[in-house]
Design a protein around this nucleic acid. Sequence first.
DNA 1: CATCCTTGGGAACGCGCTTTCCAACGGCTA
DNA 2: TAGCCGTTGGAAAGCGCGTTCCCAAGGATG
Lengths: 352, 352
Amino acid sequence: MAASKSRVARTEPGPVTLQHVADTAGVSRATASRVLNGSSRIVGSELAERVMRAARDLRYVSNAPAQALARSRTTVVGMIVHAVDDPYFAAIAAGAMRVAAEHDLLTMLANTFRDPEREIDYVARLRAHRALGLVLVGSGFTDPELTERLSEQLTDFVETGGRVALVRHQSLPFDTVLPENRRGAAQAAELLLALGHRKIGILSGPDGLSTIEHRLAGFRDTLRAAGADVPDDAIVTADFTRDGGYAGMLELDQRHPELTAVFALNDPTAVGAMAALREEIGKSVPQDVSVIGFDDVPTAQDVTPALTTVRLPLEEMGERAMRLLLEPSDRSPRTIRIKADLVVRQSTTSVT
Amino acid sequence: MAASKSRVARTEPGPVTLQHVADTAGVSRATASRVLNGSSRIVGSELAERVMRAARDLRYVSNAPAQALARSRTTVVGMIVHAVDDPYFAAIAAGAMRVAAEHDLLTMLANTFRDPEREIDYVARLRAHRALGLVLVGSGFTDPELTERLSEQLTDFVETGGRVALVRHQSLPFDTVLPENRRGAAQAAELLLALGHRKIGILSGPDGLSTIEHRLAGFRDTLRAAGADVPDDAIVTADFTRDGGYAGMLELDQRHPELTAVFALNDPTAVGAMAALREEIGKSVPQDVSVIGFDDVPTAQDVTPALTTVRLPLEEMGERAMRLLLEPSDRSPRTIRIKADLVVRQSTTSVT
DNA sequence: CATCCTTGGGAACGCGCTTTCCAACGGCTA
DNA sequence: TAGCCGTTGGAAAGCGCGTTCCCAAGGATG
């Protein structure tokens, strides 16, 4: 009976438990627990030493799920992004993970592949894991039903003690890091206008993402105010990737060969567009057509011509979001506005 | 007394437990558990319906740590990379995470920031979380003491039922996806030789990484065999990033302005080198100097001139590693060799 | 109509750890 | 020397859930 609970010799397989450590150190589980993870209670140095030696000899590794259950809290944060291999998300994730690591937290990263259902599902699963907080990165979806369900999940989570931080534009009542997409896109439009462009096309992204709507709106509104609206069929929906930009540019050029400038809603799309222009369409950037992107991912400066774009401090955004999560405030929801800066490089020039 | 165990009304805060669901459905916990996660036992459809309704109404979210404890296994895999925001790791991580998601597993991602101590520490922490397996991505460290400690951790993990898969070159006895770094680098050397280059410099990475040693060795050996060895001072240690490549190139050119070709041990470094050449040194690629990289990250094709490099199927490598993990074999350790393909683009040309 | 087998449901135990709550012990003061 | 208080170690009660092991009821069989 007692043997099954307090076996002294460890012959059977399976992980070493606290009990094993306690037994070989000749103390109770309580004592072992107290020395192995800084409890408030202090254990005599002699016993403490014995316990630590036993733990080391047995190669004890604590059981985090068991601890989580007993303490009813974990040291895990969840993060949900649309695609880790997109430099936009990668940079934000890196920033967030850095501050998580500083606080000694582990990060569970989930990829939605831009599927709203998966996003909601991941929120639920991360909640199940009792993550102490969730960072959602990326555009919100404009579908009200999806937004509603997501919001509900998040609200429940907060009500049961969870924390939430968003990096996205969406009017959910949680701490948010909010990039000024609209204003940034407006700056892009202003630049093109100043350069004399009037025939402008747009490479947009998947429908239903709020980020896209805002960038689109900021851009078009500015153009419209100047009497240079973009006709609907000069807006091509790409899929927000390099290859999507390539294909989208082909289509756009076919429909409107007269365009003198193209605004891509993110950098990879812009890079793809430039490739299509160069390799297939045979127009040169910026002489024949100016291209402007958004985000300023690291490679934007290395393509040729270097990409004019709207810069967002990606890593910092990730950091800020994680800090919001880790330093809760009583007067949430808070919003941190991140301003977007136009970075003029070589892919834009004035119309001749 | 009983009320504390089986409260029918939920007024108090805190997460909803299985008990709550069972109570409001008027069944036992066992029954509730059986319907909520497909047990082998079948529950009558009427009761099942009641339970499901109760769960939905109460917004029940299972407690993963509790489940983990009870079942003594989790649905979590751990992955350790050096830097998520490096496109190399991002691509591998994306591949691995995709197959993890297919198997309905959550991924805990840890960033070492290239610090071996952190890597070992993360292995321990991920073990504590009872991840069912660990994927370690990135170069191994050549320091034998570190390798020993890491190996020990990993071995313990496997002995207690964990699984391990590596994406790296290192002779640890675990399932491994092994990129042919040596052979790939040799191909790069062969290309340069064929193009007539004899004065060649190298932009290397941080010391102590096995990947770097192998690439370096493959390259130099081939050159040496052709009587065109690279002098030690024509090897500059950069830090494996774009900016590191930029700085490294500056130094390399200062030491050896006569070089006609440069081999960068990864693509970001090569891209940085090209930028330095163009912006600061004033030499053009490939006319004045040929540049060749390694990995073929997505942007390699978009810089100008497009980068000649050695291609590694990054996403696939991640997928393969995760599959190794998820489909254990009795005759492990297995090794999957990934062959590296030379991709000749515009950044290399024959010496005039 | 009695018996055996099938099927569903409930009670109880255990997973590994944290955390009160007690008890024992020693040192101190009166 | 007796009486107290502050320490320190241990026992035990959970944390929320999965999972036997049983019992009860119903159907099929002889």
